[in-house]
Amino acid sequence: MGEGALELLAERIRDYRAQVRLVRAEEIPNAVAKALRARNARRIVVPPGFPAEWLASGECEWLSDEGPLTPAELDRVDGVITSCVVAIAETGTLVLDGGTGQGRRALTLIPDYHLCVVPVGRVVRTVAEAMPLLDPIRPLTWISGPSATSDIELDRVEGVHGPRTLEVIVVG
């Protein structure tokens, strides 16, 4: 990670029309609460291993996936909160590998809102730097902005089948 990688990551994610907040570690619970409150999102899925201390907001119902949740149940929640395994600054990409705090793939797919916390030390500058940090045996999801399409007149429109809103909290 080089100088300014966090800022570059934030700028590149914003280019995809996703909201980004750059915060210090102790500000995470506040930032999470603020983001959820702004959307009036109350029923939030929390994957196994997601740090409980980041979930301060008393207004929310935190849903565990230990059931596991059915697709229909996931379709009715207000959103999902996860971390990621790697974030790539140059391309504004979050990579999830289903590990701690990220959950299985359906969790970040069916809900319409995805709030992702990028923990300290997970940001690399280039795609090439990310590759050796990833385990190809795990199912990976690379996320660069909210779902979008260029299928109508080759012009980009955000919001199709995946979460239509992506919000990112980058911890530095």
């Binding site: 590149r12 280019d15 995809y16 596991p68 790539i88 140059e90 391309t91 504004g92 990409t93 289903g98 299985r104 793939r105 359906a106 795609v127 090439a128 190809p136 045996i137 795990r138 199912p139 990976l140 999801t141 690379w142 996320i143 660069s144 902005g145 909210p146 779902s147 979008a148 260029s150 080759l154 980009r156 995946g162």
Partner: peptide, 29 residues
């Protein structure tokens, strides 16, 4: 290829979603 394909294709630095999978993963997919 992940650097070149989205840039050449939709003119984005990266496409919104890339999925990679290896065989099957218990409990996921």
């Amino acid at each position: 290829f992940l650097e070149l394909l989205p840039r050449s294709s939709t003119g984005e630095r990266m496409n919104p979603y890339t999925t990679t999978w290896t065989g099957v993963t218990p409990g996921d997919g």
